[in-house]
Amino acid sequence: MPLPSGSRTAADPLLEARGLTRTYTLGSGSVPAVRDVSLMIEEAEFVALQGPSGSGKTTLLNLLGLLDRPDGGTLTVDGREASGLSENERADLRRDRFGFVFQTFNLIPVLSAEENVGYPMALAGVPPDDRRSRSMELLAAVGLEQKTSVRPDLLSGGQRQRVAIARALANRPAVVFADEPTANLDSKTAEEILDLMRGLCDSRRVAFLFATHDPRVVNRARRVVSLHDGRIESDVLSTGTRT
């Protein structure tokens, strides 16, 4: 039974993984991409997931974001066990509690910036007028008030990622997952995007969990989880980072 999002008690973590395992079968062999990962994400955290290529960052993000199902271990969202959820319940949970930002932006090409931001709200049944005003507000928050009616193909990479961030925040999610959100951007734009996300994390009390192997991006995180060969190698709070 999907619980209303407000039903989470103070004691329940936003997201909790225990012993998560995901193994890909490739031909005759099998690749353990994520092994026995336990991790907790709390409200308004700003977490970097780092590790070399192939260490399992994407795989772990997909598991935590309910895009993929683990072979072992448990995942709870708002204190609720996710493994028993149906495909539709998982879709509704992603819609209401999660946001996603992708390396390749993944905006819907036939929709304007404003309509892209409005899409998750339309899924949630938000009336068109409310959708429009909230889309405008979010686009203004990411600095794109001038581009609301523009189609994605006429936007720069940085602008597209800003639209994607606004879209991720549309339904006031608890967590935004971002897999290499800056990998397709130049370093100056990447830093701007990171600062934007951190600002939104603080102002809107949204947790961000992003995978990256860019050290400059890692530097801006408040907590850094390092993966190696599918296992968590370290999980540290980087209190010393500049704000």
Partner: peptide, 16 residues
């Protein structure tokens, strides 16, 4: 295909 993946990630149900 990738757009379908995106729509699903954003919370579109398979029936959608």
């Amino acid at each position: 295909t990738r757009e379908i993946g995106t729509l699903r990630a954003l919370g579109t149900r398979p029936s959608g």
